[in-house]
């Protein structure tokens, strides 16, 4: 089995894996980082979104071995110790989650969205940018609110950028 090495949430991670091991399997099974979820098998639901070298990707549609040498951030690596990331805080404040299953992917997508699109996001932009994330509980109403608020909060002085 080939070896793969990457940095996950700031820590080095190495393992021998079958080539067919997906990045999400590596994270969940090898590293026991179970915050990244699998909600579909056709690369559409976005529950598995993590950041690879600062960009949102679907970890169910990437081989672990493709992430060789990469810097990976998962939902577990987003908060700064006990201080939540502003986007996490916004999801809680605006009731942007119910069952919580899609939430890690939503938050990672939202942070990426802000990194690319800036801190002032209108509803239309947020809804279009969420094309790759499916939620069955919230009807998206409060997710959209949370992302708009989280984006603004990421832009203000008190907030930090994403952990990577």
């Amino acid at each position: 089995m080939p070896a793969v090495s990457m940095t996950v949430n700031g820590k080095p991670a190495t393992a021998d894996v079958e080539p067919r091991t997906l990045l999400v399997q590596f994270l969940r099974e090898n590293l026991r980082l179970t915050g990244t979820h699998v909600g579909c098998d056709t690369s559409q639901c976005g529950a598995c979104v993590v950041h690879v070298d600062g960009k949102a990707v679907k970890s169910c549609t990437m081989l672990a071995i493709q992430a060789e040498g990469a810097n990976v951030t998962t939902i577990e690596g987003l908060a700064n110790g006990s201080q939540l990331h502003p986007m996490q805080e916004a999801f809680r404040e605006h009731h942007g989650l119910q069952c919580g299953f899609c939430t890690p992917g939503m938050i990672m997508t939202a942070v990426d969205m802000v990194n690319r699109k800036g801190n002032e996001l209108d509803d239309h932009t947020i809804r279009e940018e969420l094309e790759g994330n499916i939620c069955r509980c919230t009807g998206y109403h409060n997710i959209v609110k949370a992302i708009a608020a989280g984006a603004r909060s990421m832009g203000t002085g008190g907030a930090r950028k994403a952990a990577e």
């Binding site: 969940r28 980082l33 179970t34 915050g35 990244t36 979820h37 699998v38 998962t74 939902i75 577990e76 987003l78 908060a79 939540l84 996490q88 999801f91 809680r92 989650l97 919580g100 299953f101 939430t103 890690p104 938050i107």
Partner: peptide, 14 residues
Amino acid sequence: DYRFITGKGQYTDD
């Protein structure tokens, strides 16, 4: 919410 937004939920597959 805290456990869900930090990835610490414990679903059956976890």
